[in-house]
Design a protein around this nucleic acid. Structure first.
Length: 680
DNA sequence: ATAGGGTTAG
């Protein structure tokens, strides 16, 4: 239903009272002073001032507003509407002032109302947008085609189906369906409701076909998951433009059809910045980071302009690959081209350095960033947590508050992770409690998952279970997974069996759960049970995630996959690894094969080549880098105990610093020790 | 006259 008439306008308009308003908005300066002005200013001058000076400066805006009131121009609807628009600039956070202006304008016309509605939308006040429309209608102000796109958008955002249908009815009644913009936003709205058929009807109501509306229709089909309809529609389109192709490619990507996206990308007659960006982000989202990096490299060959969003995506790619050299190249590019390091780009950069193991450089970036946002602090705190530097993470957490940034839910995930990786039980429990009591941030299931992790790792399995049973929401698979991991560390078979059963029920398609449970049985010598789990997995047709390790040398990412010898120098690598293992044996290292033997899905592979890939990457690093230099390796799974002890020994015997990133944290190996203190 | 650089990305 459309909003009801407003009983109490103050309540509907927000909570601003007269006392809080800027001086010039106080009722004394109300218009109706027709004997003014004391001096004259043309409408054009005022509009010029509003449109230029006032777009960046709230101070100027207040001054011009005062001038408008003094000179009586507030009765000029054009001036009033523009004033409304200026106050609605989301940078200023002064939508209340826009509202106040509208209240002071006698008989606002369509332009004033439209500006007000659009302003609400820009400030994400969707309900207010709808209520102003309602008010406009009851005051019998005529609407026009500019009125409706923001309203459709508001209904999408609020998923307000009833209101959307009514607004659509008004549009039809007033014959605004002929306006492409109106139709386009309506199509988007219906698609957001999941009602593609209604979207299609609206499109067809438009008469002659408008490319932009058709592109919105493709997007609508894709967002509703109807790939075939999108494809059929696209094929029948006579006037395709780049946007049509881009909508298809993006649609394939969001529906997980990466190969199809690639086909269309290769086939399209002309590409623009968006085409490249869609491919890069699609690969990133699909976890195909090597392919993403290839796209980025090709963009450079094709001389596509590298804007900040592309660079930010490419930095995320590098972060995921551990591709430090590529990341550094981007950093240099940013500096050479004087691209401003805003909060988004700066945070991407620091995240890249942190995830490539260079927490020192990440720190440099963070300290020198001119513009920081909450997510910048979160990224830095999270980075310190991953590197096991809990104390530094806490320091930063307090510093952010001194600088008036309010910690949010993500901040607390980072803080709890810091506690988990450093084994700080009391601190962790205190933060879990304080986040609600002191900071007013409601803990989510993710926070409880971290807390279970903290307790479980410390061996407090009973407490962890108690927390799961007493948490205010239903535990998800991640929560049980944390407990199962703890069962492995502390060898609690009975609990592991119970938790494992719950998990295999909740996530029958997650291979990691089977692997973990099977390994727990194997380690306890219960081979039959371990085998049973593996059989169960096979029966259910669950596919494993193959282990992969990557090492970045001179800007080239080398990848090693489990059981494969696809790397061109793989022969040398295996020879080198054989040498290494012999040297370790001489140094007294006895391999522990329990986990290696029972890595699920690998037993079909050639048995002689079953080294975990982190060892292959490290062997390659030893082969290819100068003595004494640091080796950075990235792995997509968690490092096993045996590899962990092997890498410790390698760091000692070969006198190398090795920084190994696994799926959730970093291990800095040096002189036979690891920064995680064998706690991970 | 005035207001949407409509669609596809971040």
């Amino acid at each position: 239903m459309l909003p009801q008439p407003m009983q109490d306008s103050k309540q509907e308009m927000g909570t601003a009272t007269t006392a809080e308003l800027p001086y010039h908005l106080a009722p004394e300066s109300h218009l109706g002073q027709k004997h003014l002005p004391t001096f004259n200013l043309s409408q054009k001058t005022i509009l010029d001032l509003l449109n230029t000076r006032c777009s960046n400066s709230y101070e100027h805006l207040k001054q011009v507003h005062a001038l408008v009131v003094k000179t009586g121009h507030l009765q000029d609807h054009f001036v009033a509407g523009t004033l409304v628009k200026c106050y609605a600039n989301p940078q200023f956070g002064s939508l209340d002032c826009s509202i106040k202006v509208v209240q002071q304008v006698p008989n606002p016309n369509v332009f004033v109302w439209n500006s007000m509605i659009k302003g609400c939308l820009d400030n994400e006040e969707h309900r207010k947008a709808l209520s102003f429309y309602y008010r406009m209608v009851v005051l019998s102000c005529r609407t026009n085609n500019y009125t409706y796109p923001p309203l459709f958008k508001a209904c999408s955002m609020e998923q307000a189906v009833e209101e959307g249908l009514q607004i659509h009815a008004h549009v039809v009644k007033n014959s605004f369906v002929e306006d492409g913009h109106v139709r386009c936003s309506g199509i988007q709205m219906y698609a957001s409701f999941g009602r593609v058929e209604d979207a299609r009807k609206l499109l067809d109501a438009g008469g002659e076909t408008d490319v932009v509306c058709c592109n919105a229709m493709i997007d609508g089909y894709m967002k509703c998951g109807d790939v075939d309809a999108a494809r059929g529609f696209f094929e029948e389109m006579v006037n395709k433009n780049i946007g049509s192709w881009n909508a298809m490619i993006n649609g394939f990507m969001i529906n997980g059809m990466i190969d199809k996206a690639k086909d269309y990308f290769n086939e399209m007659p002309e590409k623009d910045e968006i085409s490249w960006s869609v491919m890069l982000d699609g690969y990133n989202r699909g976890g195909q980071f090597k392919e993403a990096l290839e796209v980025f490299t090709e963009m450079q060959r094709e001389n596509v302009k590298l804007r900040k969003f592309i660079l930010s995506s490419a930095l995320a790619t590098c972060a995921n690959l551990g591709a430090l050299d590529q990341g550094k190249w981007i950093h240099t590019y940013i500096r050479r081209n004087s691209i401003p390091l805003d909060a988004v780009l700066g945070t991407s950069l620091l995240d890249m350095y942190a995830k490539c193991g260079r927490i020192d450089l990440a720190w440099d970036i963070f300290e020198n960033m001119k513009q920081k946002k909450v997510f910048s602090w979160n990224a830095m705190i999270g980075a310190l947590a991953m590197h096991g530097r809990a104390e530094d993470a806490f320091d930063l957490f307090f510093q952010m508050q001194r600088e008036r940034f309010k910690p949010n839910d993500i901040t607390f995930v980072a803080i709890l992770n810091a506690c988990a990786h450093a084994g700080l039980v009391d601190e962790g429990m205190k933060y879990l409690n304080d986040m609600k009591e002191v900071y007013g941030v409601e803990p989510t299931v993710e926070h409880y998952g971290c807390a279970v992790d903290i307790l479980g790792r410390a061996g407090l399995l009973g407490e962890a279970l108690e927390l799961i049973n007493s948490m205010p929401m239903k535990p998800n698979a991640a929560v049980w997974g944390a407990l199962l991991g703890a069962c492995r560390i502390h060898k609690n078979i009975e609990l592991a069996e119970k938790v494992g059963r719950i998990l295999l029920e909740m996530e029958p398609e997650n291979s990691g759960r089977y692997a973990l449970l099977s390994n727990i049985y194997a380690k306890a010598g219960r081979w039959d049970d371990a085998t049973k789990i593996r059989m169960l997995m096979k029966e259910r047709g669950v596919r494993t995630i193959p282990g992969r390790s990557m090492i970045d040398l001179d800007g080239v990412v080398h990848e090693f996959r489990i059981g494969e010898q696809t790397h061109p120098q793989s022969k040398d690598v295996y020879l080198m690894l054989g040498q290494i293992m012999r040297r370790l044996q001489l140094a007294g290292h006895v391999p522990n094969t329990s986990q290696v033997l029972f890595d699920i899905g690998e037993e079909e592979k050639q048995t002689a080549l079953r080294y975990h890939t982190e060892r292959l990457a490290i062997a390659f690093g030893l082969l290819k880098t100068a003595p004494g230099s640091t080796i950075h390796v990235t792995n997509n799974l968690r490092v096993c105990e045996d590899c962990h002890s092997v890498v410790k020994l390698i760091s000692k015997i070969y006198s190398r610093q090795i920084i190994l990133r696994d799926r959730v944290r970093y291990h800095h190996f040096s002189d036979g020790h690891c920064s995680c203190k064998d706690f991970w």
